[in-house]
Nucleic acid binder design. Structure first.
Length: 286
DNA sequence: AACAAACACAACCGCCGCAGG
DNA sequence: GCCTGCGGCGGTTGTGTTTGT
């Protein structure tokens, strides 16, 4: 059996997504959900294959993506999980809220693997990563750090390069300790990067959010039920690309939220993409 | 200042597993 | 049980940016 290629039709666009395409995809998913990725681009009027749309949404446009640098805790967790799970990036990503398998995979290949292979150059490597990449698009900062603890934890297992799978129960203790209510600061970081994670156990009361704010990457996490609710409530709409002025009432919420972040790119990005595209989820109170 | 090398990460490709007919 | 379509996953590539010489 020969599987038909994903994009059998010629003329489908490839390469980087434009803001306009992002906006179309977001507004469509926001209103109708993504029940059928293959049919989505046609319905939404995108010249992309469904796979490309799905990847773009999963890896970049999802509202619960935590943008910005990986914290030391996250990097340690990745290393530990990789010891146990191997290259099962999706399984690792499932234990790192707001992070995608693609992102974790990239970090592993470009950063963590090298660090583990050459722990002597940790500080040099951290210094290299402490910069802005992709122009103003992505601000990457890494706290300067001592790698002693990291290296010890990474090499205490069987073998870094030949990890052994383990049961999910083995992993529970890892994430329980890694992601609770916490506030981390690093005095060594000139940017004073700070991450505050507030997890509310009562999802019914917090509307599905896990509130995660940092000075560099701040957008409330929203669970899938938010989107399905949005999709259900939008069933009466006929034109997915038509927005009402009333949706811009979210501006004041954005203003409140934006006062609590100093990442200009994130602010611009979410303002242009999310709020203008059809209204933001309710932003948390400060 | 110019060039090359290194880096970071978005995006693509091909395969696999699963569900439904 | 077989076929087909789909979503999901991991490996890899392409490209823009930064750093070093």
């Amino acid at each position: 059996m020969v599987r038909a290629p994903c994009c059998e039709k010629m003329g489908l666009k490839k390469g980087p997504w434009t803001p306009e395409e992002d906006q179309i995809l977001i507004s469509f998913v926001q209103k109708y959900g993504h029940g059928n990725w293959r049919a989505l681009p046609k319905q939404a009027g995108l010249l992309r294959c469904g796979k490309s749309c799905r990847l773009r949404w999963i890896n970049y446009l999802r509202p619960d993506i935590k943008r910005g640098n990986f914290t030391r805790e996250e990097e340690e967790t990745i290393i530990k999980l990789h010891e146990m799970l191997g290259n099962r990036w999706s399984a690792i990503a499932a234990r790192l809220p707001g992070r995608t398998d693609n992102e974790i995979k990239n970090v592993w290949h470009t950063h963590l693997k090298k660090r583990l292979n050459n722990s002597d150059t940790d500080k040099d490597y951290s210094a290299k990563r402490h910069r802005t990449t992709r122009g103003d698009k992505t601000k990457v900062t890494v706290q300067s750090e001592s790698s002693d603890h990291l290296h010890a934890s990474a090499t205490s297992g069987s073998h870094v390069n030949s990890p052994q799978p383990c049961s999910s129960s083995d992993l529970s203790s890892l994430t329980d300790t890694s992601f609770g209510a916490e506030e981390t600061t690093n005095d060594n970081d000139q940017n004073d990067s700070m991450v505050i994670v507030v997890k509310d156990d009562d999802d019914e009361n917090n509307m599905g959010y896990n509130h995660q704010f940092s000075s560099e990457s701040t957008f409330p996490e929203i669970d899938e039920s938010f989107w399905s609710d949005q999709a259900n409530s939008a069933q009466e709409n006929t034109n997915p690309l038509e927005f009402s002025d009333a949706q811009f009432q979210n501006d004041h919420l954005f203003s409140t939220w934006s006062n609590n972040t100093n990442d200009q790119y994130d602010m611009d990005f979410w303002y242009n993409i999310f709020i203008k595209a059809g209204g933001s989820p309710e932003l948390p109170e400060f």
